[in-house]
Design a protein around this nucleic acid. Structure first.
Lengths: 241, 241
DNA sequence: CTCAAGCGAGAGCAGTGCTCTCACAAACTC
DNA sequence: GAGTTTGTGAGAGCACTGCTCTCGCTTGAG
C-alpha cells in the first residue's frame, strides 16, 4: 500500500500534511471564517499560489479538514466504546454504560476541539455543499450508537419505546436502511436521541450555557442516561451476556 | 417616547432600517460569511464609507441582526403560546400542548429563516463576543418554556422528574436564579430539554438529517412530546384549571 | 539523455473591512 | 437672519483576501 513511489510523491504528501496541520492550527486559533490561504502559505514559508498545487481552492482545504474532523470524532467514539468493552473489571459493561461511553467521548472531543466541532456540526458554510466523501466519516458516530442498540437488542437487553402511528412508516424505513434487525421503535428513538445528544454538546461548545449552566458534567451525564433510557437501553445485561 | 425630533433623526432611523433590511436580504441569500458592507452600500446607492456612520463596524451590523433574530424567534414563541391559549375550542390547552406550540413555532421560524437561525444558534463568530444587549432577547424562548412549566406546576399538573444527587445542587441554583417557585427537578430537566430541542431543530436546519430522516414533522412532534414528558408536563389539566 | 510533468515564484485582478480627509447641508444659537 | 456646530456622503487609500496566469527551474520516467 504505502510503497515509496519516489521523493516527489513523498514530498507531496509531506507538504500536504504540513498545510493541513498549519490550517488546523489557524482553525483552532481564529476559526474557520478567518482561515486564510495566504496566512497558511506565509507561515509555511511558501508563496500563496503554490498552495493551489495541493488544494484547488479554499473550500477543498476546508473539505479535507472536515473529513479529518469527522474521522477524529468518529474514531474517538469507536475507541471509547472499545475501551469500555475491554477494561471491564466487573464483567462486560451494560448497554447504558456503553452508550454513555460514546456520548462522553464525543463531548470530550468537541470541548477539546471547538472550532473543528463547529466546522462539522455548526452552521454550514453558505455556498458549500458537502461532497460525497464526507458522508462515510460523518456517519461513524451514528453507527457506533446503532451498534450499541443493536448489541443490546440481540442480547435481549432493550425495552421497546413507544412509537406514534404517524411515525411508524418512517421508523420502519430507517430500520430497513440503517439498522436491519432493529425494531422500528428503537431506530426512531435512536435518531431523535442522536440529534438531541448533539444539541446538548452544541449548546455547551457554542456558549449557550454561559451564565446559565455551571455543573455541565453532571447535566450531561444525567441527560445522556435519560437518552439511553428513551432509546430503550437497560442498565443491566452486558452486550453478549 | 417616539416624539419626532426632527428630519435628521427621522432620516437616520430610516436609513438604519434600510441598511438592516438589505443586510437581512443578503443574509438570507448568501449567509453571514458573505455579508459585505460594500455590497450593502452598493445596493443602497451609497458609498461604503457612509455605512460606518450608522454601524461602527461589520460586527456591529451583525450584532443588530442577531438581536433582531433573537427577538423574532422569541416573539414567535410567545405569540404561538398566546394563540394556543386563546383559540381553545375545547377549553384551555394542557401543558403538553402549550409546550408543543412553542417548540413548533420555534422550529417553523428556524426553517423559514435558516441563515438567521444559524446566526444565533450556529457556530459563534470567532472573534465575536456577544454583547450584553443580546442576553435579554436571547432568553425569551427559554422564558416562554419556563412559564409553561411554571403554570403547570401551580396548577398541579406536573410530575417531578427524577434528579440525580450529583445534579441536585445545580438544579437548586437554576431554580433560584431563573424559576423561583419551580422544583429543582423540573428546572434541571427543563434546561436539558431546552438544549435538546435546539439539537433537533439544528440537525434539521443544518442538513444533518439530509438523506437520513424523511418524515421530519412526525419525528419532531413525537420528540417534543417526549421532551415535555421528561420535564414532567402532563397532557391533562389546563394551565389554570 | 530527453522531455514532459510537477513545482515555486511573482505579478496581477477583483474584491473585502476600515480609516482618513474634505466639502456640503441641516440644525441649533445668538 | 447671521454664524457656528454637527451630522453626513464622497472619495482616496491601506492592508488584506481568494484566485489566475505565466515564467522558469527541477525532477523523474521513458
Amino acid at each position: 500500500m504505502t510503497t515509496i513511489r519516489g521523493a516527489r510523491e513523498r514530498a507531496r504528501t509531506e507538504v500536504t500534511a504540513a498545510i493541513k496541520d498549519e490550517a488546523r492550527r489557524q482553525l483552532a486559533a481564529e476559526g474557520a471564517a478567518k482561515l486564510s490561504l495566504r496566512a497558511v502559505a506565509r507561515e509555511l514559508g511558501m508563496v500563496s499560489s503554490a498552495l493551489y498545487r495541493y488544494f484547488p481552492s479554499r473550500d477543498d482545504l476546508l473539505t479535507a479538514l472536515i473529513v479529518d474532523a469527522f474521522n477524529a470524532v468518529g474514531s474517538a467514539a469507536e475507541q471509547a466504546l472499545a475501551t469500555a468493552d475491554s477494561a471491564g473489571p466487573a464483567g462486560p459493561p451494560g448497554p447504558v454504560d456503553r452508550w454513555t461511553a460514546i456520548c462522553t467521548a464525543v463531548r470530550a472531543w468537541a470541548l477539546a476541539h471547538p472550532h473543528e466541532y463547529a466546522l462539522i456540526y455548526g452552521s454550514p458554510v453558505p455556498g458549500y455543499i458537502a461532497p460525497q466523501v464526507t458522508v462515510a466519516p460523518a456517519s461513524r458516530v451514528g453507527l457506533a450508537l446503532i451498534s450499541v442498540a443493536s448489541d443490546a437488542h440481540h442480547a435481549g437487553g432493550i425495552a421497546l419505546p413507544t412509537l406514534s402511528p404517524e411515525l411508524r412508516p418512517e421508523a420502519e424505513r430507517l430500520a430497513a436502511q440503517f439498522a436491519p434487525g432493529l425494531p422500528p421503535e428503537v431506530t426512531a428513538a435512536l435518531v431523535a436521541a442522536w440529534a438531541q445528544l448533539f444539541g446538548l454538546i452544541s449548546f455547551e461548545v457554542f456558549g449557550q450555557f454561559n451564565e446559565v449552566v455551571e455543573a455541565r458534567d453532571e447535566l450531561f451525564t444525567q441527560s445522556v442516561r435519560r437518552l439511553a433510557h428513551e432509546v430503550g437501553l437497560l442498565a443491566t445485561a452486558g452486550p453478549t451476556a
